[in-house]
């Protein structure tokens, strides 16, 4: 076991490092509040925009709050939104995509044209519209982002299903008189799982970027609750006084997304049947 892990670490250093990063991020999301050395919400007008010091390892923000503590709890809302949105978009998107490829012609026409139209609009603009008018918060962000990524999933599920339906074993299922439910759940779904898993990792990364982008604009997670994107947005006003204020959350956010992308790339390689055959 250990020797295998070591071997993996040697042959795939980036993959293993990314898994480690994601484990740490997950740990922060679960127990960040408990790990925080200070109360992330305590204001301290005497110590605003300070650099790192013995008491504030990463310095303080514009209200004198401890940066490290805020960073530690700042990933939780982002991660909840990203994972929740991915689940929503994966479930509905996959079903719509399968229906679009395997359903009756008029249904698939309707679904796929709707998907095309949704896709022809950048998600952030629609999100902007939705959160701009409705109350912003973790729940509404999750739902909005989840709904926005449904067409992406539907597109992937659709093309994967089309590929599967062209295979002879689908004809074999029909020839045996299999029911639609059997075809969808035993013939289609297991065979399109790989692209869906890859799409899910991409969606987590995209949802993190979208949430942090909205928070960056001040339209996402509502202060004083911190999120990394929102911290970057605020810190931009203090680039001159305290450049490290913007650098820490930027680094963490970029590292997290990078780790997800590396894992996603690797998953794609592992799950791609063309690469696995040989």
């Amino acid at each position: 076991m250990t020797s295998r892990t070591l071997g993996l670490a040697r042959s795939q250093p980036a993959f293993v490092a990314s898994l480690a990063v994601l484990a740490i991020v997950l740990l922060m999301a679960i127990s960040g509040g408990w790990l925080a050395p200070h109360d992330p919400f305590t204001l301290n007008p005497q110590a605003v925009n300070q650099g790192s010091s013995a008491s504030h390892w990463l310095g303080t923000d514009e209200f004198g709050r401890d940066l490290l503590s805020r960073l530690l709890i700042g990933i939780r809302p982002t991660l909840i939104v990203a994972l929740g949105a991915t689940v929503i978009s994966a479930v509905f998107g996959s079903l719509l995509g399968i229906a679009g490829a395997y359903g009756r012609p008029w249904l698939s026409f309707l679904i796929m044209r709707a998907v095309d139209i949704m896709l022809s609009f950048p998600p952030i603009l629609l999100a902007l519209l939705a959160v701009g008018f409705w109350e912003s918060g973790v729940l509404s962000l999750t739902v909005v982002i989840g709904v926005l990524y449904i067409p992406h999933f539907a597109r992937v599920a659709h093309s994967a299903t089309l590929q599967v339906t062209r295979q002879e074993f689908m004809e074999a299922e029909h020839a045996m008189g299999a029911s639609v439910r059997r075809v969808v759940f035993t013939a289609i779904l297991p065979n399109i799982l790989s692209p869906l898993v890859v799409q899910a990792t991409l969606t987590v990364a995209a949802a993190i970027l979208l949430e942090s982008g909205l928070s960056f604009l001040g339209l996402g997670i509502v202060p004083p609750e911190p999120s990394w994107g929102q911290m970057i947005g605020t810190a931009r006003g203090y680039l001159g006084q305290n450049p490290m204020y913007v650098i820490w959350p930027s680094l963490l956010l970029a590292l997290t997304v990078l780790a997800i992308n590396v894992v996603g790339d690797r998953l794609r390689d592992i799950l791609d049947p063309r690469l696995r055959e040989e």
């Binding site: 990364a205 970027l209 942090s212 982008g213 960056f216 994107g229 970057i232 947005g233 931009r236 680039l239 913007v246 930027s250 956010l253 970029a254 997304v257 990078l258 997800i260 992308n261 590396v262 790339d265």
Partner: peptide, 15 residues
């Protein structure tokens, strides 16, 4: 390139 697709535009812009 993998790093490039992972860094959000606003972080890139800030840097």
């Amino acid at each position: 390139a993998t790093i490039g697709i992972s860094v959000p535009v606003y972080i890139m812009g800030t840097m």
